[in-house]
Design a protein around this nucleic acid. Structure first.
Lengths: 343, 343
DNA sequence: CGTGAGGATTGGAACGTTCCAATTCCGGGG
DNA sequence: CCCCGGAATTGGAACGTTCCAATCCTCACG
């Protein structure tokens, strides 16, 4: 099979072995119909025998196209992002693009260098599944290459599209649901100090106010540990229901409650946010976003913009809805009689 | 900032603007010390003003190096792989390599094309965090580029290293643990028909035999759904303890038990496999592998092999250990008096 | 038997870098 | 005033493709 000649076989080698010019070899390997059958077969055979592997860097260089979009994922540990990615991959593949995936592990420095690398590799578009870039950096990037941000709406940057849910009303859904179950001491375990967390918090506060209830926000983070710590504080403050900033943190909340001997939902209710598939198994109520769809929308927007650059920014807003599961139940204050009859 | 000249600025443009040759511009941008300070500054300024972005494809082509390793992940939805990836990234970054990440979403066809793309992009090494390739494909790949397989030992393929835990004894640890808690009807929810699943199953069977117990294997899969379905079958068969093929499936098992009104661990014990971080929050007993370490080992092996190709295959075996948490407790058959005093 | 059409094939430029070898520049020592 | 050495700079080849324009063949037709 493989020739053991040290150097990697090149198109030139294939052509030589098949007794044709490299131009014809190139044509044949691209499947051009203008190559005589005999030549084609000789070329294909030669390529096979040599173990020829086309060099994409050379090809990209001369073609001035890569047919590749870069995808940045904030955090690979959060399955939510994987679900969004599914949609993105499906979407771009349908248009014959492939993806180059990088992650900054939520570290802005790593994130910048990784995205820079994508740009230097001449990806034709960029999907940012959450990010920690400054608006300035974002503007620079968007000017260079079609870009869409998934997860929050990004205004005021030319040529940048976004796909996001409405976190403001989404957080409200959670509050409404809990109020409907008779809860009044509803705490919010926040997601820290970032765009999404602020938005969800604001939505929580707005909804609480609209019900005439006193808001109680405790510090948390978009992680299990954050949810755990925040939940302890909320419990100390006497909350009977928690609106947790995201699903991962909600899992941490569950752990904290178990550790303190509190039953869910009899003693305290928990609502997460994001709608990751795993939550189904965990029987957690959550505010769900159509994650894979978000990825698909992002891919569509991107491909379209790659096809015809310029044009105004578009912002796709996806539907957010509450999925009620076993982690939310009637408020314990609402009368003992109901205990234990939940779902 | 950016010139609006349509075409991307190239090194030639930078040089022209700085009034030097492209050779000197190249030198300066690489930070060579032999460039006069005045020239350097002019060049850097010109690059900045033009918004110059080096073209990595061109650079890779002429250098014949990419300083990049390809990483294939079987399934982004399983956080276990993300944890392994952390280690890989850390390991290769320490040696100034970057990573190109692809996933086949557990679809062998997609997987092949994605890995092919990596090879065509001339990655200098390959880490396969689980895969579904045939041995033949694997051999072809390993001959082309240094490769290490993480997750199971792969013998008999020249120049291919591997990093894996000992699934045979690992599954035994789970059985031993449960036997120690007084269980005798211990079922195994299998992970389907693949290398790892077979190994873990064999380990379970061997351990059961060594304790003189009757094995009971039910079909499952490495997913929540697989765990759910398998668990229902195991419950029907009257098991009081489950050794589940992996953590994801164990989460599904939990869901199935909840749905059937069974308490964990009072009525039935559950042990997972992999040791993903999430399980800590879920209070699930598991057979843990040092995931991030596995990634780091893989990176080290790979980098070393890139440095000096050839040489015999090396197989790194990592330590597997049982982490006992709240999902495993005394067998209900072991006497009523203990009920409820677990942990 | 010459001509031309059209299919098959080929040479060579180009893509944007890197880096080697060669050249220029400059000041100081003889 | 010439020469030399070293620092600074430059031209140009090379990397492996693609693709345009040009050439070569073959064969049918007049």
């Amino acid at each position: 099979m493989t020739a053991t000649t040290g150097r990697r076989p090149t198109l030139h080698d294939v052509a030589a072995r098949a007794g044709v010019s490299k131009s014809l070899a190139s044509l044949a390997l691209q499947g051009s119909p203008k190559v005589a059958t005999a030549s084609r077969e000789a070329i294909l055979a030669a390529a096979d025998e040599l173990g020829y592997r086309p060099n994409r860097t050379a090809s990209n260089l001369v073609r001035q196209r890569t047919h590749t979009v870069g995808v940045h994922i904030l955090d690979l540990h959060n399955p939510v992002f994987a679900e969004i990615l599914d949609g993105v991959q499906e979407g771009v593949r349908a248009h014959d693009f492939s993806t180059l995936l990088v992650t900054g592990n939520a570290d802005p420095r790593v994130e910048r260098t990784e995205i820079t690398r994508l740009l230097e590799s001449r990806v034709e578009g960029l999907v940012l599944i959450a990010h920690r870039l400054s608006d300035d950096d974002l503007a620079v990037i968007a000017r260079e290459v079609p870009t869409v941000v998934v997860t929050w709406r990004t205004d005021g940057i030319a040529g940048l599209d976004s796909v996001a849910g409405d976190d403001l009303t989404g957080a409200g859904l959670a509050v409404d649901h809990l109020v409907g179950l008779g809860h009044t001491s509803i705490a919010h375990v926040s997601g820290g100090d970032n765009r999404i967390a602020r938005e969800r918090r604001a939505g929580y506060e707005r909804a609480m106010a609209s019900h005439g209830l006193e808001p109680l926000v405790v510090d948390g983070a978009f992680s299990e540990a954050g949810g755990y710590a925040g939940t302890e504080a909320a419990v100390d403050a006497g909350a009977t229901a928690l609106v947790v900033a995201n699903d991962l943190a909600a899992i941490g909340a569950l752990a904290a409650l178990r550790a303190h001997g509190l039953r869910v939902p009899e003693d305290i209710s928990v609502v997460g946010y994001d709608g990751m598939r795993l939550l189904d198994s965990l029987d957690l109520t959550t505010v769900a976003q159509p994650l894979a769809d978000m990825g698909r929308f992002a891919a569509d927007l991107l491909i379209e913009r790659i096809g015809s650059p310029g044009g105004p920014s578009r912002h796709h807003r996806v539907e957010t809805r509450l999925i009620a599961r076993g982690s939310s139940g009637l408020s314990p204050d609402a009368g003992e009689l109901h205990l234990g009859e939940i779902r």
